[in-house]
Write a protein that binds this DNA or RNA. Structure first.
Lengths: 117, 117
DNA sequence: TAAACATGTAATTACATAATTACCTATTTG
DNA sequence: CAAATAGGTAATTATGTAATTACATGTTTA
């Protein structure tokens, strides 16, 4: 299962650059301890721990304590589920329908004008 | 281009169920006016307009004013870019490496225990 | 042209986020 | 065992989010 609330938690977790960086680190070094991650950021260790808590609530990170060190792991399952159940549906709009293609091209131009204006 | 800030804006926009519902509506009915969307929600019209502003800032929705009505369109480009540049990298973890597969299975069990406990 | 309609702006409020410092607990290790 | 190490809690603060009501603006249409 994958409730709306769970999906919100995942998107919210991904909506912060530091948290995305943490996932990058864990992807590259599974089992990395908390302190080693904190050392790679300019903000305080506590701030990083808060980010980790957000990631854990979203199910994107799991942890395992050995002795006094907590080892962290990326869990890509929620990302996979979002991609399968949601992203694919929206990306579809690119292929397939010609009707929406014209409309989306126009929309993209409008957005560009808005950004530059 | 697609900056960290832009990516944060997109994820943040997607992190609210009402905003995801708005995208669903616009996917089904391109050009839908503001009021018609607002009528489909329990919250106030102003609240819906705020959600639309968040979606527009993220580039997920564009609009075009004809007369007194503003017509809204889904723009799936940012979703597509996120999927290509980010989601795919993380979903990869499922295929390919057997080392991380064992680790992720264990992590998933741990997460399940945590949720039920 | 007056009323109805569609949207937009301003001010306000309750709550959540992201960060900080100071302190506490548990585990190694010299 | 004492000191260093790794992590966790608590209290606080500034800022951002999500929602509200009341009012204003511009556009059809009867």
């Amino acid at each position: 299962m994958f409730t709306d609330e769970a999906m919100s938690a995942v998107f919210h977790a991904l909506a912060h650059e530091s948290r995305r960086q943490i996932l990058d680190i864990l992807k590259a070094s599974p089992g990395c301890p908390v302190g080693e991650i904190a050392r790679q950021f300019d903000v305080s260790r506590i701030a990083v721990m808060n980010h980790l808590a957000v990631l854990e609530k979203a199910g994107l990170v799991t942890s395992e304590k050995r002795g006094r060190t907590r080892h962290l792991y990326l869990n890509a399952v929620p990302i996979r589920m979002i991609q399968e159940r949601w992203m694919d549906d929206y990306s579809e709009q690119f292929a397939g329908r010609l009707t929406s293609l014209k409309q989306m091209a126009e929309a993209a131009v409008q957005q560009k004008d808005k950004d530059n204006g």
